[in-house]
Structure formats: C-alpha cells, structure tokens
C-alpha cells in the first residue's frame, strides 16, 4: 500500500506540483514553439509522453546496471581485476552522453518502426518525433532518475522511474495544451505592440508558472488523503 501511495505521489508530483515545464522550466522550446493550436499541442504532448517513457525505461536499465556507483557491471569488473572491494568504480560521468545516445537512437528506432507498421500514426505525430530527440524535458527525466539511483537509500525500481516519466509527460501535455488554449484566445486580444508574439507568450508562461506554484505543498496533504482513502 505504501508503494502505491508513493507511486501516486511521484506521478502527481511530476505532473502538477513539480511540473517539468512550469516548475523546472525544461522543455520550454516545444512549449513555446508548438503551442499555437490545441490539436498540434496535444499531438506534441502525446509524442513527448511516449518518447519519455521509452527513454526512461532504457536509461533506468543502463543507469541501474552500469552507471550508478554500486552498479553490478563496474563492481564485477573491478573485483575480477582483483581490486579492493571497499573502493567503488563510478561511471556516472558518462550519464549525459549515454542518455543523449540512448534517447536519440531509441527515437530513431521508434520512428522507423512506426513508419513501417503504423503509417497513419506516423503521419499524425511522426513529424514531432525527430524534434524531441534532444528535448531537455526528456533528458531531465533521465537525470532525475539518475539522481534517485545515486542515492542508495532511494534506489528507484523501474516502476518508480516509469511513473515519473509518464507523470512528467502528462504534466507536459497539460501545460502545453493550456498554453495553446490561451494562445488561441490571445489571437483575438488587443496586445500592446511591443509585447506581441514571443513577449506575451513568455509573460503568459510566467503567469501560468505562478499559478502552478499554487500546487506546492499539496504533497503531504495528498499523502494523508490517500492513506485515509486506501485504508
């Protein structure tokens, strides 16, 4: 039961309280670039959620078995070579290059796969896939998973990593769809000349971020409510 509560907390935390876009300000580029119309924004959100789940799964596996300080692979190599078991070999310096590598190639793979077997799906969001290979929101999710795995007390499993990724993707979708809705209305508004275009979009994003700051502190309340509800 505690695991479930923890998972729900991670999901809500990633989607609302610590929204990737509006709390950490990562993934701003598609957030501003593809938020002109709600339907394309939704497509982009779905594509990000999809890619972020794949990237998180793969990078969790690589981090868990290779990159984290006490990972099986380096430890095994170290001990086979007759090293002192007390010292640790830490490969986490490789995290950035490895994550970009993994994300880019998995997206390439997925793109080819979707193009071959699901042409309609490829038509609807295939164009977004190459755009998000190096999306910082996705790299951010991977780095967050790395941070949790570097801490021996946390040591996330795949389920937690995946929950964070999907939660983050849903949060991104919520943020970009809200933004697109506002910007559609904004087209009809009398915006002062110097602020038109990027200026007013950034101001709107800032106000949205302030609104999302209102979710801060919900964390413990949700935990108590869930504990009561699930008992």
């Amino acid at each position: 039961m505690d695991t479930l509560i923890a998972l729900i907390q991670i999901a809500i935390g990633a989607a609302l309280i610590n929204n990737f876009v509006l709390y950490y300000f990562v993934g701003i580029c598609p957030f501003l670039g593809v938020s002109r119309r709600v339907d394309t924004a939704f497509g982009m959100g779905c594509a990000v959620t999809f890619v972020i789940s794949i990237a998180a799964t793969l990078s969790w596996a690589f981090t868990y078995f290779i990159l984290r300080p006490e990972a099986p692979l380096p430890t095994w190599v170290w001990e086979t070579l007759g090293g002192d078991p007390g010292t640790k070999v830490d490969l986490s310096v490789l995290s950035y290059i490895m994550y970009i590598f993994v994300i880019a190639s998995s997206v390439q793979f997925v793109e080819m796969y979707v193009r071959k077997f699901f042409p309609p799906l490829y038509k609807s969001f295939g164009v977004f896939l190459p755009l998000i290979t190096t999306n910082c929101a996705i790299l951010f999710a991977c780095l967050k998973i790395l941070a949790e795995l570097q801490d021996p007390e946390q040591l996330w499993g795949l389920h937690q990593a995946l929950t964070l990724a999907v939660g983050g993707g849903v949060g991104f979708t919520i943020a970009i769809c809200l933004m697109a809705g506002i910007r559609e209305e904004l087209d009809m508004c009398d915006v002062p000349k110097p602020l038109r275009g990027a200026g007013i979009s950034l101001i709107v994003a800032g106000i949205m971020a302030m609104a999302f700051a209102g979710f801060a502190g919900m964390d413990s309340g949700i935990k108590d409510a869930l504990a009561m509800f699930l008992k």
Partner: peptide, 13 residues
Amino acid sequence: PVTVTMVLAAVVL
C-alpha cells in the same frame, strides 16, 4: 579505480 573507470567508460561506450 581511475584507470578502470577510464577503460571501462571507453569500452562501455
């Protein structure tokens, strides 16, 4: 540990 890390990084990548 340093040499092992370096070699291992190269090999893994």
